[in-house]
């Protein structure tokens, strides 16, 4: 299991705070585990909540770019790298 980078830590905290995941700590979100479905069990309402929080914090509007938000929302790592590329 790889460790969270600084930006991953920051986004893991944002996920936990935004989505009310009281039973999990930011450090427990493994960077390469799926955020949705079998992994953390997030759903489409969470994706909208996160998009809102991300645009508030990083100043850009999130787009899925593919049908099931698969690529970007796949893991903490993919989300973090998308945010790093697009933040303003």
């Amino acid at each position: 299991m790889s460790e969270q980078t600084a930006i991953e830590q920051e986004i893991a905290q944002l996920i936990v705070d935004t989505l009310n995941l009281e039973d999990i700590s930011a450090a427990e979100i493994a960077p390469q585990e799926p955020l949705f479905g079998e992994g953390l069990g997030l759903d489409s309402i969470d994706a909208l909540e996160l998009a809102l929080a991300i645009s508030g914090k990083y100043g850009f509007q999130l787009k899925a770019e593919d049908e099931n938000n698969k690529a970007i929302f796949a893991t903490l790592r993919s989300l973090a790298s998308h945010i790093e590329k697009n933040r303003v």
Binding site: E22, E38, D43
Partner: peptide, 23 residues
Amino acid sequence: PVKAIQSHLRKAMDAVFLPRPLK
């Protein structure tokens, strides 16, 4: 542990119904 309960539920129901929070 809360996590074990969550993972049991995750397998049995659609993600939108997972409890936030499970206390």
